[in-house]
């Protein structure tokens, strides 16, 4: 008895050791979306040395992880930029606390992706009043005084792009009243609502409507679950828009498991895996509409120009514009190779 128990125990310990050896994670995911200084660009030459403070929510999601990675990597391409990242903590209150300490350290510019634009609006004002320009990244401050520059994605436009791609494709196939499915992200977020509204509006211009809409949670397992149910609800489908490529891994798994291929699918965000799948043209995924975390890299570039009191070289103005809204681009098999470097 004792020996048997010892064997069990020994086995468990061995197992633990084996498992402990398996944490290393050498995924080739270190390819950040950056743009090094261009030789021809007058802004490329190193200028005044500046410090950029940066804060974004801690992420358990690929997109937001890419935001921080991109910001860090972009800052590293400039010899005149010192990058100072502060952990954002797990909610708006925690982020506010760490940002207070950041103001005290007086960086030249602050790049901030807030937990919640409304809740951290007051911080933006405070920093601006303290003479530190704020570059507001993606989640917008409602008050224009709270930021020097705002750079964000276009959620509504993302839905519009997906709607137009699907609308055109189905018109080309001469399908009069198509059955269209939608798998949204977290439904309680405003951005999800905006995406769905854009999708609906664009489809309406073709006279199409969404037959069934499920909301997943931006994770692959919930994507799989919702897709599996959606496929049951729509035994025949013409098109499907899935808001997020990360949850799309699960959505595609459900589609493959059900051996369904009678429809075309459009993704969202533009992950590296989705772009590779589109380029390979092996699944129902034919396109994805971007909401690219490359905006974090651009935010750092803009922050540098603001800190050094420079404008964007191609524009006439001597200062950086107040707002930049990225266009949602549609990635298809034809242009996938060009976009591959922007996949995250």
């Amino acid at each position: 008895m004792a020996t048997r128990r010892n064997m069990l125990l020994g086995g468990a310990v061995l197992g633990a050791l084996a498992a402990a050896g398996c944490t290393s994670n050498e995924t080739p995911s270190g390819n950040a979306q950056t743009k090094g200084p261009d030789a021809g660009n007058p802004n490329a030459a190193p200028g005044k040395k500046i410090t950029i403070g940066f804060s974004a929510p801690a992420a358990d999601h690929g997109w937001i992880a890419a935001i921080t990675n991109n910001a860090k990597a972009q800052a590293a391409t400039y010899s005149d930029v010192t990058f100072k990242q502060v952990e954002a903590g797990k909610d708006a209150a925690a982020q506010r606390a760490v940002l207070e300490t950041l103001i005290a350290e007086k960086p030249d510019v602050i790049v901030l992706l807030p937990h919640d634009g409304k809740e951290l609006n007051a911080f933006g004002l405070k920093a601006m009043n303290a003479g530190i320009p704020v570059v507001n990244l993606d989640r917008a401050f409602p008050d224009a005084l709270a930021y020097r520059c705002q750079i964000k994605g276009d959620n509504y436009g993302m839905g519009v792009a997906a709607g137009h791609y699907i609308g055109k494709a189905l018109k080309a196939k001469n399908i009069a009243s198509p059955i269209i499915g939608e798998i949204a992200g977290m439904d309680e977020l405003e951005l999800t609502q905006e995406r769905s509204q854009g999708f609906k509006a664009a489809l309406a211009t073709y006279g199409f409507t969404v037959a069934n809409r499920r909301a997943a949670r931006f994770t692959a397992d919930t994507g799989q679950k919702e897709a599996q149910n959606l496929l049951q609800a729509l035994p025949k489908m013409d098109a499907l828009w899935n808001h997020d490529d990360d949850q799309g891994i699960g959505v595609l798994a459900a589609i493959n498991a059900a051996s369904r291929n009678e429809f075309l699918m459009v993704g969202g965000a533009g992950s590296k895996k989705a772009i590779e799948d589109i380029a390979g043209d092996k699944s129902v995924l034919k396109a994805t509409v971007t909401y690219s975390p490359s905006m974090a890299s651009s935010a750092i570039s803009l922050a540098r120009l603001i800190g050094q009191n420079k404008g964007m070289a191609d524009l006439v103005e001597l200062q950086v514009p107040k707002e930049v809204i990225l266009a949602s681009e549609t990635i298809t098999k034809e242009n996938a190779q060009t976009y591959l470097k922007l996949g995250f």
Binding site: D60, H61, G62, R217, F218, T219, A220, D221, T222, G223, Q224, K225, D246, I249, G250, L252, A253, A254, A257
Partner: peptide, 15 residues
């Protein structure tokens, strides 16, 4: 089982 269903896993899974 969940990894098999979603052909992937992540820290926010099984919420």
């Amino acid at each position: 089982m969940l990894t098999s269903l979603a052909t992937s896993s992540q820290a926010a899974a099984a919420e």
